[in-house]
Simulated scan of single mutants.
Amino acid sequence: MNSSKAYSAATEKSPLASTTIPRRDPGEHDVQIEILFCGICHSDLHSVRNEWSEFMPTVYPIVPGHEIVGRVTKVGSAVTKYKPGDRVGVGCLVDSDRTCPNCQAGLENFCPNLTLTFNSPDKHLGGVTYGGYSDSIVVDERFVLSVPSNLDLAGAAPLLCAGITTYSPMRHWGVTKGKKVGVVGLGGLGHMGVKFARALGAHVVVFTTSPHKTEDALRLGAHEVVVSRDANAMQKHAGSFDFILDAVSAEHDVNAYINLLRLDGNLTLVGAPAKPLAVSAFSLIMGRRNLSGSNIGGLPETQEMLNFCGEHNITSDVEVIPIQKVNEAYERLLKSDVKYRFAIDLASLKSE
């Protein structure tokens, strides 16, 4: 067993602080990774503060982080996909049962017995899994992903969650050249949605409540920007969208966007509002419209997404911070004070 430097929270009201955690020695199918960057996802904050206690109670101490990129330092004797020095990533999953129909179909993210990167039962060491706010991690090679050599590693880190969360539903619902795609909300998820929709060849429209985000939305690849509080501007797009990605986690009127879908159009929720959204049956019925949700992606699709990013030079817009500023970053995250994702430089752990 090895020890690793990390940042953890001891209780739901504790700040994240320096600690040491155990990591298993690499087994024959394992890859040991030096973590170089880890993105900060809003779910990290929810978990640290036990805000999802009803369906995913936090076990303390918690080491969050599931947007991990780094370099391979050691591989087990049976590993065939990776070698020391390779650039790799680890997302939200580090294991699954591998035998259920979903796993067999490459949809490990829907496995009923999946192991999350942090706060899941750890079958190797006992206790729970510890995430990427750490200087190293050991993961079965099946759950390790190859990061294209041309991508900036700090910007690539959020691809392991924010990237696949927005890419997967677009691929599932057939976003291609000639489609009209809406993206609701220009934050950590939304800005990735804009980049993917544009790269897939769609006509991209961003919906925002903040007029000052117009310039940035256009810079990221949007063709048009609609201020959603402007009823006339919304009405001009009624019944015209093939697909809308809703990345808003706050309460909002989802019917306003369902009404913008054309016949058989789809609106996919990837934001997770705390309270249920009211949906008008008539909004769906009158246009045979679809309302769906999506949750990250399986391992094959996540690798496909990373390869796509390599081909199109897509990364997340990040602000790189040292780990010592992680608590400040959490407070800023609550205020949406970041464009558009924080990435922790884990070299900063060396000074701890």
Rank of each mutant, 00 (worst) to 15 (best):
G39E: 05
G76D: 07
N109Y: 05
V175I: 09
D95I: 00
T165C: 01
L291D: 07
V138N: 05
A222D: 05
V320T: 15
F37P: 01
P15T: 04
G190C: 08
P101R: 10
N290Q: 14
M286L: 15
H203T: 12
A278V: 12
A256F: 12
S8C: 13
G27S: 14
H124I: 14
N313L: 05
Q235M: 13
Y60R: 00
L334T: 09
G193R: 01
F118S: 03
A202S: 13
A217G: 14
I344H: 04
V184P: 03
H237W: 12
V205D: 05
A231T: 12
H172V: 08
L261Y: 10
G265C: 10
G221Q: 05
H124N: 12
Y257V: 11
M286V: 14
V338M: 03
V31A: 10
F342S: 02
Q104P: 02
A17K: 11
A105V: 04
V318P: 05
N119C: 02
V279L: 06
T315G: 04
P101F: 06
G70F: 09
F196C: 03
F282S: 15
N119D: 11
D152W: 06
L245D: 03
A256T: 15
Y7E: 05
F241L: 04
S292T: 15
G297R: 02
T20M: 11
I62G: 00
S134Q: 14
I258W: 03
E331C: 00
F342V: 12
L269T: 09
A256N: 11
E319G: 04
D30Q: 02
F196V: 05
L349E: 12
T58Y: 01
T19V: 13
G89T: 10
G185N: 07
V138W: 11
K213N: 14
R332H: 13
A154L: 08
G132W: 13
L125K: 01
S4F: 13
H29A: 12
K83Q: 15
V181Y: 00
V88T: 03
E319A: 03
G131C: 09
A162H: 07
K275N: 13
A256Q: 15
I344T: 04
T268Q: 00
L220V: 10
A256C: 11
V88Q: 02
N2L: 13
S146F: 09
G126A: 04
H223A: 09
G163M: 02
M234A: 03
V225R: 00
T117H: 06
T20H: 10
N102K: 12
D30L: 01
L299W: 11
E311T: 09
M170L: 06
K13C: 00
A247W: 06
T99Y: 00
T117W: 07
L334E: 11
K123M: 09
T11I: 04
